[in-house]
Structures are given as structure tokens and as C-alpha cells.
Computed example of a mutant assay.
Amino acid sequence: MITAATPRRRWSGVGQVLHWTCAGLILFMLGLGLYMVEWVDDPAQKFDLYQLHKTTGAFVFLLMAIRALWRLFTAAPALPQTMPRHEQLISKGVHLLLYGLIFGVLIAGYVYVSASTLPLPIELPGGYHVPNLVAPDYELSESAKVVHHRLAFVLMALVGLHILAALKHRLWDRDEVLQSMLPGRG
């Protein structure tokens, strides 16, 4: 039983579901983005993949907004006492940077498609759509595209670092950092 004097050692089920759902969708989006830009030549297939990417991006934005709001009111589990202070600070910084990059990639993508000279709104299930943010503007669209792509590559690198850090905690440090985000008893 956890008392006020005993810090929580695991993320709640809500936190775990939000984390793993967002993580899976973001990895899917990064992979899909690379695939559709670098390897798809068929215009019809590329169009369909872009539409899927845009729709999924809107869903990721919604989930990340929920997650960020939830996180504002939920304290993180205590980090291991054996974890050096500099690693604790790096961990907090990387998590803030992850949130910032995720929202940055999503917003840049939204501006990119909104300002496109082919102003197709983001389609949602049920026939709904997300309206374009701005009027068509080729230069703005191209600038937002560059920002979207560059931030996505930085995000990929940071996600890789995050995964490596989780594995370090499990395999090298043998502490409970990774387990705190895994389902199961704690």
C-alpha cells in the first residue's frame, strides 16, 4: 500500500496507455512519413498515404494534447535514488524536448498542408475535417515543409536516444525506470 511517505514507483494505467498509444502512433507516423516521401513514386498511392499521414497526425495531436494536460496534473513516479542528479536533469530535459518536438512537428505539418496551393483539409472519420489554418501560400507551405521534415529527423534521433536510455536502465543500471511504464504489477 502506498502512503504519503512512500513515493509512487509506477505510472498509472492511464499514463501507460497514453504513453504507449502515442509512442506507437508517433513511430508509425515517422516511418510512414519517410516511406511516402522517399520511396513512393505512384502519385495516387502517395496521395492516399499523405491523407492517412494527415489524419493520423490530427489524432496524434489530440492524444498528445490530452497527454500533456494529464501530465500537468500528474506527478511522475520517483526516480531511483541511485540515479545520478545529472541523469535526472537530462531525463527531465529530454522529456520536455520530446513534447516540444512532437508538437513542433505536428504544428509545422498542419501549417504545411494548410498553406498548400492544393488546400485539401485534413479528413477525419465520419466525414468531418480539420479546416485549413491559413490561406494557400506557396512560400509559407514550403518553409513549413522544411521545418516539419527537419524537426521530424531531430525527433527520430531523440526517440532513439529515449529508447536507448530505457534499455540502459533495464540492462545496465538494472533499476525500475523502464518497468514503471510497463503494464503489470509494481
Rank of each mutant, 00 (worst) to 15 (best):
R85T: 05
R174M: 09
W70L: 02
K54D: 12
H19Y: 09
Y128P: 11
L118G: 11
K168F: 07
R85I: 00
L30N: 04
R9W: 11
S143M: 11
V113D: 07
M83C: 11
A4F: 15
R10D: 13
T6I: 09
Q88D: 09
A144E: 08
M83V: 07
M1S: 14
L140C: 03
L101V: 04
I122H: 07
S180N: 05
S91P: 02
G15Y: 10
A135R: 11
T55G: 07
A144P: 03
L161W: 09
P43H: 08
W70S: 01
G109H: 09
H129L: 14
R150V: 11
I122N: 11
A78Y: 10
Y35Q: 03
Q51I: 04
P80H: 02
L30C: 03
V177P: 00
A76N: 08
A108R: 06
V113P: 02
D41I: 06
A44K: 10
V17F: 06
G104Y: 08
A68L: 09
R85S: 05
V177D: 06
M83P: 05
I26F: 00
A165L: 00
G31E: 13
L30R: 01
H169N: 01
G127N: 07
G13H: 14
G184P: 04
R8G: 05
L161G: 09
R71D: 14
Y35R: 03
V40M: 04
C22M: 13
A135V: 08
M36S: 04
L63N: 01
F61W: 07
V159R: 02
V113S: 12
K92W: 14
G160Y: 03
A4R: 13
S180I: 05
R85Q: 04
L34D: 14
V94W: 12
L69T: 12
S141R: 03
I102V: 11
V159F: 04
M64C: 12
L69I: 15
A78S: 08
V105C: 03
E139S: 12
S116V: 01
E176C: 07
T82A: 12
D41C: 10
L25N: 10
H148I: 00
D41R: 13
I102W: 08
L140T: 03
P121I: 01
D41H: 14
T56A: 14
T74C: 00
F28G: 03
L140R: 01
A76T: 04
G33A: 01
A165V: 00
D137R: 00
R9D: 14
H86P: 01
P7V: 01
L178P: 02
V113F: 11
L171H: 12
F59Q: 10
Y99L: 05
L34E: 14
M29F: 02
F59Y: 12
Q51M: 05
V14Q: 13
V113L: 05
L27F: 09
E87Q: 13
N132G: 03
R9V: 07
H148Y: 06
E123V: 12
T55W: 12
L164Y: 10
L133A: 02
L32H: 07
V147I: 12
Y35P: 00
S91R: 05
R9F: 09
R174Y: 13
G126P: 02
L96H: 15
I102M: 08
P43R: 06
A157E: 11
